[in-house]
Design a protein around this nucleic acid. Structure first.
Lengths: 225, 225
DNA sequence: TTCCCCTTGTTGCAAAAACAACATACGCTT
DNA sequence: AAGCGTATGTTGTTTTTGCAACAAGGGGAA
């Protein structure tokens, strides 16, 4: 049980909650831990979203099936991870994704209503959890907006500039490091790696940018673009 | 004052709150209405995000300035609209955007802490507002994820298929209408209108799709793609 | 009806990206 | 140090996009 609580404490939903309060909190939440075998369906697309899931053991796939029947894995959620929170909080009528067990798994399912409704005893940690949930959703929102800003550019060159500018702004300096390999960066920007590599070279030869490995430096140019 | 409350009631943050409770709620929130002249800075990029803004009168620009100094308008928020909620809830240290008055405006600023902290009297409507805020953030999240799924496709053709599949899934049928004109759809997908038009024609001649005006029908194909 | 404007579809062309295949550089293990 | 595998950069080809200009069609107003 000790290990179980440790796992929860690592989850941002429970951050800044006193470990000693976790047991009480779990009582308020009335979560049920359910076991699933590999390939079992945890949530099915089309269902009403009511619960948030936390992976106690094993891992799950968040999957999407399009109209043509092609299935895509949107996310792989491992031990300690959470899924379904956005759909639960949005009270979506029809879940647009399915969640399937990748392996035999133990999932803690918590009813959304129990999360957002402070319990009769109005426990402080419960309130903290609501705040955490707001923070989680808000941060994802900010990250997604940032990425959308990048992805809306038409060319690889512009996507690179948008991404690198953003990193520079975050670092507060023209010189900064990036946390991606080239392939990862290409995946993040949704472009071809080799084309991106070419675009990077061109940016350098154009004098807009200098880089070695993962260290970059954007060079301000007052005139044209 | 009556008009002012009407405006708030239309805002999703206050939905399902009894109009009679609004006055009390506003006291809990301790919001300040401030006047700004055209081009006044309401939030400045780099500031700490602490407050949510609601436009009582006038309108504001949410703007971003990149490393090169190019400014982009991310959003125009009109009367009744809200801004800054994601940054406030994420407790962002450095606001990545600025908010500027487009015209002389009256802005109701509410401290984020006051929103998420239920007041001593634990009023029910205050709690409802927290739930609303969760819903707002979660819905934006879902919408952004949906769009990301579309935007991550490499070609216009694939973006179209992703978008139309999504619409079909939402309609629960291969036949459905879309709420966009061609130009709007192109903007949504971040592609060129005429290229998109060509891609649509090709999809139709390939027998994947039929459409007239804004009525579309996706035709299932069991074999290849 | 006729005229005009706006939306949508089409075509040609230039630029860019995707793709593939290869070359080089780097880090790690033995 | 040598050898190997991975990551990165380069080059050439094909496909697609973006752009621009134009044609076709529809709706509304006079």
């Amino acid at each position: 049980m000790e290990k179980y609580h440790e796992l929860l404490l690592k989850n941002p939903l429970f951050s800044d909650i006193d470990p000693g309060d976790i047991t009480l909190l779990l009582q308020c939440l009335n979560g049920k831990t359910q076991s699933y075998r590999k390939n079992d369906i945890i949530f099915l697309a089309g269902d009403k979203a009511r619960a948030v899931g936390i992976v106690r053991a094993g891992s799950v796939n968040v999957m999407k099936e399009d109209f043509m029947g092609n299935r895509t894995i949107l996310a792989i959620i491992g031990k300690g991870g959470m899924f379904g929170e956005a759909f639960a909080c949005a009270q979506t009528d029809k879940l647009p994704v399915s969640v399937i067990a990748r392996a035999d798994s133990e999932i803690l399912l918590i009813d959304y209503k129990k999360i957002i409704t402070t319990c009769p005893s109005a426990c402080a940690f419960h309130h903290r959890m609501i705040e955490n949930m707001l923070g989680i959703l808000a941060e994802k929102n900010v990250a997604l907006n940032k990425k959308m800003d990048i992805m809306s550019r038409r060319s690889t060159r512009e996507k690179l500039i948008a991404y690198l500018s953003d990193r520079a702004a975050e670092a507060g300096s023209g010189a900064f490091d990036i946390p991606f390999s080239r392939q990862e960066l290409a995946d993040y920007l949704c472009v071809d790696r080799s084309a991106m590599s070419t675009a990077l070279s061109k940016l350098q030869s154009d004098g807009v940018l200098r880089y070695t490995h993962n260290s970059f430096e954007l060079l301000l140019r007052s005139d044209d673009d």
